[in-house]
Design a protein around this nucleic acid. Structure first.
Lengths: 244, 244
DNA sequence: TGACGAAACTTGTCAAGACAACCATGCTCA
DNA sequence: TGAGCATGGTTGTCTTGACAAGTTTCGTCA
């Protein structure tokens, strides 16, 4: 058993060892090598495998368990947490940040970015006259190359005049917009539906399968700043939210 | 310097020492002895004060910092985290108040109100040991005599010791609980499902019809205060809310 | 006076060893 | 056969000791 390649050869200056252990575990779980309910090697085995001390292995496993990825039972072992609500997707917080916290890679595919004129329903949602100009972007958020959210974003030009110049594969609309105007009020409507052909194609899911749509409006400076329709595959989703 | 009274004299069998350190810090912060922005004693000073090793002090401080109660700066020190800087984004509203604003009449039917022991999943949601005691209430909210929401409410007894004595046909659990402890953090999980027989009967809806379930956890004083499962008929629901 | 640098102090991390609490297994003994 | 116990393996926690990395302070030197 070669124990070298499991960790970076030299104590990498930037990332502590317990983080490397966490990344190691995460990668094996993500790759399917250790499926759900699988029992992990014991702490002592991981010590032999990685060459670090048991305290370090323990800290890595404990933090992953605190985060909900693992389940630990004293006297028995450590297990990959079952398929629970744990595919937390979108948040009130930045979706890219959330993924980063989970150790996932975020990417976004921009499908459209344009100005358009509000139809009566959209105009009413913004409190603007019908035909008023709005900005619009449509993008798909990917977690480790898997599509997890379709974002239809409508923006009041008054709030973010430079919205159309942004590169949303580099900065999420959420992040850009909150930098333009802090949201003072938020409204959410949750809707259970089924994927229409366009949605199914964007999210790489079968047509007519169940999905959840979050309608979100945010106000800034007393006017409706943006409206987002966030579509997720499946019947369950975590609306993260928000602390202090 | 007497170091004895700061910690329990004997290594208390149940609670580990790092937990005792955390409780010590928490109590001083809660009592106002260490106000916001105050600098805490250094790790080495806490070692002298408490008699435990620095690793143990470090773990206690690190976990409190992870929870957001403290701020740590390498080379400088540990500080009590400032007061809640910004507002909560998702405001919770009392369902009875919402109805009043709409000019509807609210009523509630209490189906159960009891104490129970947490199964492992519920215990995990609360961060309590399995078998811990919880309070529970099940009630149906009526809008103009029409059932609109089935509320399954689980409560951490520490937060609301008198929960079982309340008459929830007169005051909503939400209203009572927010009077006990202000929520500082909220988490929502949305789930689309179909009504099982019990739910259908409670909401006077056909069995197997679509419904939306909101799982809501709220934190107060850094612990999980309550968990609510709110079931609504239909495929659309306005989560509400709010402001600064 | 001003710039530089050493020293002290802080937090961040890791190692090695130890004991306790808990669980599963298998063995012994009635 | 069945109950009870010993044993080994697992996680949970703690201590001592150490080094690294960051900040502040203050003294020294130009």
């Amino acid at each position: 058993m070669s124990d070298a390649p499991l960790l970076l050869p030299t104590p990498s200056p930037a990332t502590p060892r317990y983080q490397q252990i966490k990344a190691l575990i995460l990668s094996r779980v993500a790759s399917g090598e250790w499926p759900a309910e699988e029992r992990l090697p014991s702490e002592n085995e991981l010590v032999k495998m990685t060459g670090v001390s048991r305290v370090t292995v323990n800290r890595a496993l404990r933090e992953l368990a605190d985060a909900g990825l693992l389940t630990r039972v004293q006297g028995v072992g450590t297990f990959v947490a079952g398929a629970k609500p744990q595919s937390s997707l979108l948040e009130l917080r930045d979706i890219a940040e959330e993924m980063a916290e989970r150790g996932s890679r975020h990417a976004a595919r921009v499908l459209a970015q344009q100005r358009l004129r509000a139809d009566p329903a959209m105009a009413a949602a913004f409190g603007l006259p019908p035909g008023a100009e709005l900005f619009h972007a449509r993008l798909v958020h990917l977690e480790n190359d898997v599509p997890v959210q379709l974002e239809e974003r409508y923006v009041n030009p008054v709030i973010a005049p430079r919205f159309l110049e942004q590169d949303f594969s580099r900065i999420t609309p959420y992040r850009f917009l909150t930098s333009c105007a802090p949201p003072e009020r938020v409204e959410h409507v949750v809707e259970a539906g089924r994927a229409n052909p366009a949605t199914a194609a964007a999210l790489a899911m079968p047509e007519d399968e169940p999905c959840l749509v979050i309608h979100r409006r945010t106000w800034s400076w007393r006017v409706v700043a943006t409206r987002a329709l966030l579509t997720h595959p499946g019947t369950r989703y975590r609306l993260g939210s928000a602390l202090d």
